[in-house]
């Protein structure tokens, strides 16, 4: 029997997810044994034309990491969708929009201005920005369109399962691959990890008092967190209660609070909104002015509460820009 064909693709992301595949270490040999990789731009020299030449649905599974931010990425993921039986957003960016998704608080114009003009290391007095077409003596050069809005993969194409994480932990990747190979897959649309929030397995949960009562919000950079204690009990924002578990608590073990890369649990659509609703319940202040003060003490709330999930939130992006 021929080995199933597998594709990896890289959209708007940092490349960490590619590293995660490499992080499988010797396990990668098992994968290579079991499957036939037909697309992996970061590691192998397959071309787009090779994919186009393939029959529809001939790829068993495409793992796509990164959010969709350019025309090229959109074209490629649509192509892969056509050629694949299963498409799995791989990692937080493809799943929720990820950190690139935070660009949704700005538009293309603002991003270009910042990236190509305003940064201190840039010298661009004429204000030249990348164009989709440029005439040169050698002919017309083209670049793909840079969209205003970063989208998650499932906002661009239909997807089958999600592999969460920034980046997905190797164990989870192996589990997913094994499940696919063995055909033991959960219902379509599932996130390939546990359904419960991180607190379920977090060692520190036991130290959480019955009544959480936050009187002020502390930043992790300003305090030395007690490595035994629940972050929330100390007034440090930890998105653990609102984030799917299964990640192995790598951050927590490094004494850093959870920032939510695994995305919300099953019933929750908008992770940031949900966590804010929860957080408001444990603010133990009755005076309206005091409440206002606490709310305002959070620096960059979008970056904190929607670090990985802004494009997948209800409002998706900043309005009016």
């Amino acid at each position: 029997m021929a080995k199933p064909l597998v594709a990896f693709y890289w959209c708007a992301s940092c490349g960490g997810c590619e590293e995660a595949v490499v992080d499988l270490a010797e396990d990668i040999l098992k994968v290579v044994d079991a499957v036939d990789i037909r697309l992996w731009p970061v590691a192998m020299d397959f071309k787009r034309a090779d994919v186009e030449a393939m029959e529809d649905k001939s790829i068993a599974v495409s793992f796509i990491n990164g959010a969709v931010r350019t025309e090229e990425q959109e074209e490629m993921v649509k192509l892969l969708r056509k050629k694949s039986q299963l498409v799995i957003p791989f990692g937080a960016c493809a799943h929720l929009g990820g950190i690139p998704g935070l660009a949704n608080i700005a538009n293309k114009k603002e991003i270009f201005e910042t990236a190509y003009k305003l940064t201190r290391s840039t010298q661009n007095p004429k204000g030249i920005y990348p164009q989709t077409t440029t005439d040169t003596p050698y002919g017309k050069l083209t670049l793909p369109e840079f969209f205003d809005t970063v989208k998650t993969l499932d906002q661009t194409i239909e997807v089958d399962y999600y592999l969460p994480g920034c980046a997905p932990p190797p164990e989870l990747i192996m589990q997913a691959v094994t499940a696919i190979l063995e055909g033991k897959l959960p219902p379509k649309g599932s996130v390939l990890t546990v359904d419960k929030a991180l607190c379920e397995t977090c060692e520190r949960n036991k130290s959480k008092p019955d009544t959480l009562a936050i009187k002020d919000i502390k930043r992790i950079s300003h305090v030395i967190a007690d490595p035994e204690k629940c972050f929330l009990a100390e007034g440090i924002i930890c998105l653990g209660p609102a984030t799917r578990g299964g990640c192995g608590e790598r951050c927590i073990n490094a004494n850093m609070p959870c920032r939510g890369c695994f995305g919300p649990t099953k019933e929750v659509k908008d992770m940031g909104a949900k966590f804010l609703s929860s957080l408001a319940s444990i603010i133990d202040v009755d005076d309206e002015k005091e409440i206002e003060k606490i709310a305002e003490s959070v620096i960059d709330p979008i970056g904190l509460f929607y670090m990985y999930s802004l494009p997948s939130s209800i409002l998706k992006r900043k309005q009016g820009v």
Partner: peptide, 10 residues
């Protein structure tokens, strides 16, 4: 779905 995160108790 419950992770016993205790947020609700208080």
């Amino acid at each position: 779905l419950c992770s016993v995160c205790r947020m609700c108790i208080g």
